[in-house]
Design a protein around this nucleic acid. Structure first.
Length: 305
DNA sequence: AAGACGAAAGTGGTTGA
DNA sequence: TCAACAACTTTCGTCTT
């Protein structure tokens, strides 16, 4: 059976796509974007009958029982090459014990990573569920986290912040607009730490994260303010002018989006107060005023020409 | 009285020596 | 590592509707 799927990653343009029938996905090996899910699944042992199973069986690697049966009770083989009574032991016994020790250690590291992964994935899904983030974004986050763990980037950092940062990266690369604030809220931790982990991961993994533009925020603001679609058009037009006039560079995109929405609210007559918009946009009224001021000044000038 | 406006001082993050 | 800096916030008094 042949399958003509995508050949290029829509996010970073890489052609190194990994098609993984067991995980029923096509994944970009460069940025970790999950391009397609729910491919035909060939392996009878791993057939996923519903979404829950697909998550549990395919994604998490080790089944959840793995972490339960162990519960952190690990064993160690003594480093001394002695029998229990303190006698020396024969050379071939000694060699055997050393081999056992080696493998025991290796297996334990593997265990620790799997545990970390399972932990992180449940954290990721927990945050994502709170925000109703779609499944493919969660999957992308999982892939990114796996890469991070494989490169040893997670050690010494809190699983929570790494999980949240991973989810944020996934949102950005998948074009699912969420603010760092929202993620931080849902994760129950501060924005700063997640932001730091975010930047760290982006640097270390070399992921291309498309920058957010004011436009990305407008639709969300309008829907949260329950405004009509004609306002949307005006807001987008305003932003277009603004970016042509280079009013957008270097400014926080949310402030500009909020100002554009305010302009639209005034022009359409379904006026919203600056405070209302500021609240949803998570910027202050003053910021809206400043953006709005320069918007009006420059665009009026433009119109008069 | 509510909303809009703007000045001034404060805050947290980035940059460049 | 530290100071300068830009963007944004906080606060508060004044103006407008």
């Amino acid at each position: 059976m042949s399958y003509a799927g995508p050949t290029r990653c829509p996010n970073c343009g890489s052609t190194n796509l990994l098609r993984d029938p067991e995980q029923a996905e096509i994944v970009c090996t460069r940025c970790g974007l999950v391009i397609e899910t729910d491919l035909m699944d060939y392996g009878p042992e791993w057939r996923a009958f519903d979404d829950d199973q697909r998550t549990d069986r395919v994604r998490v690697g080790a089944p959840i029982t793995y972490t339960i049966h162990d519960k952190g009770l690990t064993t160690t083989i003594d480093w001394r090459d002695k029998a229990i009574e303190g006698k020396n032991i024969t050379p071939d016994k000694r060699a055997q014990i050393r081999r056992m020790r080696k493998w025991h250690r290796r297996i334990r590291i593997y265990d620790a990573q799997e545990r970390n992964l399972a932990n992180a994935l449940s954290e990721i899904t927990r945050i994502a569920d709170k925000l109703s983030i779609p499944k493919n974004v969660i999957e992308t986050a999982a892939v990114i986290y796996r890469r991070a763990i494989a490169l040893g980037l997670v050690r010494g950092r809190s699983i929570q912040s790494m999980a949240a940062a991973t989810l944020y990266i996934a949102c950005r690369t998948c074009g699912h607009v969420r603010t760092l604030d929202e993620i931080a809220d849902a994760a129950g931790m501060n924005k700063k730490e997640i932001g730091r982990s975010f930047r760290f991961l982006v640097n270390e993994l070399g992921i291309f994260v498309p920058p957010l533009t004011p436009k990305d925020y407008v639709a969300r603001l309008l829907s949260r303010l329950r405004m009509r679609s004609e306002a949307e058009e005006i807001a987008y037009k305003t932003l277009e002018y603004a970016s042509q006039l280079r009013l957008t560079s270097g400014r926080g995109p949310m402030g500009i989006a909020a100002a554009a929405v305010y302009v639209a609210s005034v022009l359409t007559g379904e006026r919203k107060t600056q405070r209302e918009i500021a609240e949803f946009a998570r910027v202050t009224e003053v910021t809206i005023r400043n953006r709005y001021k320069s918007l009006v000044k420059n665009i009026m000038f433009e119109v008069h020409l």
